[in-house]
């Protein structure tokens, strides 16, 4: 307590010329304000309620899609029994499940997933580097932004399957042709995501960087890029989706023994053999890979970035 202190305590807080009586008043005031301040801090601090338990999480987010999937299969079964289409065009769920299991057991599924996923990962990695560089270049040079901005945005709405014929003519049926299509699909999304992320950074943050005395490079590294991260992540997510779609389109069309058998080629095989169960199996595998990447990679990444910044509700 302030009053317990010996009178005439040497001035430690640098306030010149305060008499002892004044000092006591000051100390008491200080003490009181400190108590009020501590109370305010305690009252104002945001405390989030504890998150839902595992069971509730399961009931809330895992169960609904499973139930819906079950419903779809039931409708399908009914349609099959009603023979809406002849059985070769609409096989029963059991038939498809059997084919699916066969494909998985023979290793054909794993091989196709591996071929496509490694190709997709390589193409996405290349797109990541090129798209990021392109986005940065468009940020630094307003001229470049004005010159190629509209084209980059336009490319985003052009289905990249449109490039397949051109790519085949340039590179014949090769991996180069496939990567060309993947890059043309993913690079614009990534570049645009980064650019719009950086455009949305509040100018105040840049002023903070200047006031703190960071160099232009330091401001980019410690302020601009981290501030743009949510937009960039959105761009990456869309970039991956475009890369995966482009890859499937390219694999579906460029069918050659040297290219191995990816998921797209497996799908094409099903069409050529008129095996509807293989076609559905391939589609299911393509979908599963897409969902898995989204759920295992992008969704947690985004959730982490956003919740760190207090930008998301639970």
């Amino acid at each position: 307590m302030a009053t317990d202190r010996p009178p005439g305590r040497p001035s430690a807080d640098g306030r010149p010329g305060l008499a002892v009586a004044d000092r006591d008043v000051a100390d008491r005031d200080e003490e009181r304000t400190r108590a009020v301040g501590a109370g305010l801090d305690a009252l104002d601090t945001v405390t989030l309620p504890p998150g839902p338990g595992l069971v509730r999480k399961f009931v809330r987010s895992v169960l609904p899609p499973i139930v819906f999937l079950g419903f779809l299969v039931a409708v399908w079964q009914v349609a099959y029994l009603a023979e809406v289409k002849p059985p070769y065009a609409l096989p029963s769920p059991a038939d498809v499940a059997g084919r699916f299991w066969e494909t998985v057991q023979s290793g054909q599924a794993l091989e196709a997933i591996w071929t496509s996923l490694s190709r997709g990962a390589a193409g996405f990695a290349m797109s990541l580097v090129l798209g990021t560089l392109l986005g940065l270049a468009m940020w630094w040079s307003t001229w470049l932004r004005a010159a190629i901005g509209p084209i980059v945005s336009g490319l985003q709405s052009l289905p990249s399957v449109a490039w397949v014929p051109a790519a085949i003519i340039w590179f014949s049926l090769s991996n180069a042709a496939i990567y060309t299509v993947v890059l043309l699909g993913a690079v614009p999304s990534i570049a645009n995501g980064l650019l719009s992320g950086m455009k949305q950074v509040p100018p105040l943050f840049d002023r903070v960087g200047r006031v703190l005395g960071l160099s232009a490079l330091g401001r980019t590294r410690y302020v601009l890029l981290p501030a743009a991260l949510p937009g960039y992540l959105g761009g990456l997510r869309q970039g991956w989706a475009f890369a995966w779609r482009s890859l499937m389109a390219a694999e579906l069309i460029t069918y050659s023994p040297q290219l191995g058998q990816g998921l797209g080629q497996l799908l094409n095989l099903g069409r050529e053999l008129s095996q509807m169960s293989l076609v559905i199996t391939s589609i299911a595998l393509i979908l599963a890979v897409g969902v898995a990447i989204e759920l295992l990679l992008f969704a947690p990444l985004e959730r982490r970035v956003l919740s760190r910044r207090g930008l998301t509700m639970r």
């Binding site: 301040g37 305010l40 801090d41 104002d44 601090t45 945001v46 760190r308 910044r309 207090g310």
Partner: peptide, 13 residues
């Protein structure tokens, strides 16, 4: 309070 994120702090803090 050093480990807190900005959104966990009150306006005064």
């Amino acid at each position: 309070h050093g480990g807190k994120r900005v959104h966990e702090l009150s306006g005064g803090m």
